[in-house]
């Protein structure tokens, strides 16, 4: 699957759940490309903005879409990577704030 196919597939399934792609298509394609890099590297689409441990079970909370997406989009209008956003976030750049890491540090087991 190439990145454009991934874009179309995810856009359909995720928008239906109320999670929209960042309007910056080039940025989204770049992030999706990095997800494919991680799938190639680790065997699963680990969040490209977080250091994977390489152990799928330990990284299950950061498999994209991550376990923190819902809360982050609700609170900040965007997930940690700015991949999935709310419609308001897309329409109002003033809402674009840094999304802090919600994942508890102890879960980060990559050494």
């Amino acid at each position: 699957m190439n990145v454009d196919q991934l874009y179309e597939m995810l856009k359909k399934t995720q928008e239906a759940k109320g999670f929209f792609f960042n309007r910056d298509r080039a940025r989204v394609l770049d992030i999706l490309q990095d997800l494919l890099v991680n799938r190639e590297r680790y065997g699963y689409m680990s969040c490209p903005c977080r250091l994977a441990s390489g152990n799928r079970d330990e990284d299950k909370d950061i498999l994209c879409p991550c376990a923190y997406r819902e809360q982050d989009v609700a609170e900040f209008g965007s997930c940690y990577c700015n991949l999935y956003v709310s419609q308001e976030w897309n329409e109002n750049p003033a809402l674009h704030v840094y999304v802090p890491e919600r994942r508890p540090p102890e879960k980060m087991t990559a050494f």
Partner: peptide
Amino acid sequence: SLSTCSHCKA
């Protein structure tokens, strides 16, 4: 940084 991280690239 991470080579795959969009914020790092930015």
